[in-house]
Computed example of a mutant assay.
Amino acid sequence: MSFQPQALYNLSGRVAVVTGGGTGIGLIIAQGLAASGAKVYITGRRLEVLRKAADAWNEQNANAGPAIIPLKMDVTDKGSILEGRKFLEEQEGKIHILVNKFVLLLRVPGPTSPFLGDPAAQQLKDAGTLGQALFDNETFGQWADLYTINTFSVFFVTTAFLGLLDNGSRDIDGYTSVVINVTSISGLIKVAQEHFAYNSAKAAASHLTKMLATEFALKKVKVRVNAIAPGVYASEMTHDYIKPEEVDKVGKGVQPVPAARAGTGQEMAGTAIYLASLSGGYMNGQEIIIDGGYTTVNPSTV
């Protein structure tokens, strides 16, 4: 038994799939896994974005071992998911790490109601006006689209890849394959942050994480399922960089973020590496919150 970091967090020989891996948090996690020795497939709808991200990493780390490999796959389409699975079956026959990180097509979290954050807004003058404003401002289709991306895809990608993950658990002694769902503190806090649909979809993904972990354990499937719930991090949706003075504007909390800054790529990647490695092998059915203390000072379910 070794307690050296290179042993605790070594991912050599592991095969990872990171959905939404071409930008933002997904790319950060993919790079972290690759830096720890994993062979990482990044997926998304925009193949040119995936290729650009993979080429940049592979060029900078030409002698570092396993590469980042682009794989076009639409996580909202069952046919595309099955095509991705077939490709991985033929190329690898197994995977050890599946990161479900989905990217919105637009840089906004679905339908929003900005007037919720404006005390002087006319929409807030009475209950009836508020209710009608919320009713008129959003559609069933917008909600369905958001749930498809952030919740439904967690279920369909995970179940489609479950056999490959199980194969991964069989070839390394003492190692259990893992699904890592990237949720959000937006699914854990009780304020809407001006977007009811996004927050409730993330809450659904959090609970789905726990249900999948429980059902797999009860059915003797040797695949762990955990989640990472980030607070304010730079991503494609937040325009890739957040100045310290903008953190609370992005977070839209009742109280400011105690850390007074956004999270870093190292903190995000390090959490994913822990869950994917032998050091996180006893973690199952849990959601790790990395939010700079946001949920400690804002109304939340934790």
Rank of each mutant, 00 (worst) to 15 (best):
A269L: 01
L98C: 00
F152C: 05
R14I: 03
D291C: 09
I273H: 03
H195P: 12
T43I: 06
S12H: 14
E246N: 15
L188W: 00
R45D: 00
G44N: 01
V40L: 14
A7Q: 15
A16D: 03
L124G: 09
N100E: 06
G265W: 01
L11N: 07
L71G: 11
A133F: 05
L8Y: 04
N61H: 15
I149R: 00
T183W: 05
I28E: 09
G65P: 03
L124K: 14
V99L: 09
K220M: 05
V75L: 00
M268D: 00
E90H: 06
N10Q: 07
V257S: 02
A34Y: 04
E83D: 14
E92L: 11
Q4C: 12
L162I: 10
L105W: 01
T43S: 14
T158R: 05
G280P: 03
A272R: 13
E194Y: 08
A64S: 15
D291Q: 06
V250D: 03
E236R: 15
A62P: 05
S184R: 04
L27Y: 05
A227Y: 07
F87S: 12
A272G: 12
I97H: 06
A229P: 02
P258R: 04
A121K: 08
S200V: 11
T23I: 02
A53Q: 03
L47P: 00
K202I: 00
P111M: 04
G285R: 08
F115R: 04
Q142K: 08
L33G: 06
K86G: 11
L278D: 14
L104S: 13
L124E: 10
L134H: 10
V221Q: 05
Q193V: 06
T176N: 13
Q6W: 12
G174N: 11
G22R: 07
D248R: 08
S2A: 10
D118C: 08
V49K: 11
V302H: 14
L164K: 09
Q31M: 14
F196N: 12
F102Q: 07
G281R: 13
I28Y: 02
V103A: 02
A203Y: 02
A54E: 07
A259W: 01
A62R: 14
Q60H: 11
P244R: 08
K72R: 15
H207V: 10
A197M: 04
A120F: 09
A133M: 10
Y175L: 14
V250I: 13
H207M: 14
K39E: 15
T176M: 14
V232T: 10
A16Q: 01
I242V: 07
E92Y: 04
I290F: 00
E267I: 01
D171M: 09
R107N: 15
V302K: 14
L106F: 10
V18T: 09
Q60R: 15
G141M: 12
A67W: 04
